[in-house]
Each structure stands twice: as C-alpha cells, then as structure tokens.
C-alpha cells in the first residue's frame, strides 16, 4: 500500500477519517448510555465504528484507502481522548484490515451497497475476534454471546453498509467525488 496513493488521496482520506474520528469520540458516550440498558442494544450502534473505512473507500475507490481511513479515524479518536485509549488503535487496525480485504477480494471494482455491507460484516468479525481476548466474550452465556454477535453484525450492515452508501450517494450529487476520481475517458478523447 502507499505507492499508489497520491498526496491528495491521502489528505482527503485522512480528513474523512478525522471527521468520523470526532463522531467516533461522540459516539462513545451514546454507546455507553445505551449499554447500561443491557441486552446488547448498544451493539446495534457498534457499526458506526466501521464507517470511516467504508465511506473513504466508496469516495476514493483506491487500494489502501479503507485501511488507512480506519486506522486514521482510530488515531483521531485516540488523540482526541477517546474512552477506549490505545485499544481503539488495535481495533481500528483489525477492522480496517478486514474491510480492506473484502474490497481487495473484489479487486476494488465494486462500490455498491452489498460490498459496503460485506465490508461492514468483515469489520464486525474482526472486532469480535479482538473482543474474544479483550472482552472475554467467549465467557458470556452462549445465548448472550450469540445476541451480541448478531446485533453487532446487524448494526454493521445497517450503519456501515446501508447508511454509508446513502451518505456517499448524497456526496456524489454535490460533485465533490469527481475531484478524487480519475477523469472519464471521453474527456481525454475530446482533446483529440
């Protein structure tokens, strides 16, 4: 990764990531409040923490962007004093890698809602994997662990699949995405 990304790609990725880093930071207390209700309703919100990778990829559509965005967003949340401290960085790395792998598996050629959802699910699995060591979730009662996994995955599909795709669609309407995407062939042909 890296060689293919231009400075402008990187800067745009990071700014998207940091905006979501701020949202991640604000999401923490909300998640906390919902979590006290018990029953893993809060897990539906968890998908928000995968969104930077998906949105950045859908905007820029280049290899490496998803990973960079998720790590940058986690780094952002960390330096703004996020509640989970360094743990955020590890989760960010894992989730970013997972989403990146999905996009790579489709050779960076697909940008639809399905692929966004798949990336979200992959990120959810990555976070669950880390939580196995970090949160002892294997030691929850079986039904409870299944509820946790199920709601987290559902949340991932809803937020980082459906919602992020809609968000990027609205962004495309503003024309800003053209800045970071290659110009169309027709435009080059028009040069003669």
């Amino acid at each position: 990764m890296g060689k293919g990304l231009k400075l402008s790609d990187i800067l745009v990725t990071i700014i998207i990531a940091l905006i979501f880093g701020v949202i991640y930071k604000l999401w923490g207390p909300l998640y906390g409040v919902v979590a006290t209700l018990g029953l893993h309703l809060e897990q539906l919100l968890y998908g928000m923490w995968f969104i930077a990778a998906v949105v950045a990829y859908l905007v820029i559509r280049k290899p490496g962007v998803a990973l960079l965005a998720e790590v940058a967003a986690a780094q952002g949340e960390f330096i703004f004093g996020g509640e989970w401290g360094v743990a955020t960085l590890i989760f960010g790395l894992g989730q970013g890698l997972a989403a990146e792998l999905i996009f790579a598996a489709f050779r960076y050629k697909r940008y639809d809602m399905l692929i966004a959802s798949l990336a979200g699910i992959a990120a959810a699995f990555a976070s669950l994997g880390i939580d196995f060591y970090y949160g002892y979730i294997g030691d929850l009662a079986l039904w409870n662990m299944l509820v946790l996994c199920g709601t987290r995955i559902a949340g991932a599909v809803l937020i980082s699949g459906v919602f992020s795709h809609l968000l990027v669609q609205s962004l495309e309407k503003t024309g800003v995405t053209n800045l970071v995407r290659p110009a169309a062939k027709e435009d080059y042909q028009a040069l003669g």
């Binding site: 053209n178 435009d187 040069l191």
Partner: peptide
C-alpha cells in the same frame, strides 16, 4: 496545449 475540464462542454 489543449485542456478540458472533466464534464465541461468544450475545451478551455
């Protein structure tokens, strides 16, 4: 030199 902004109707 020939130049055209993406999406513009004609060459600048």
């Amino acid at each position: 030199m020939r130049l055209k902004f993406p999406g513009a109707e004609s060459l600048l």
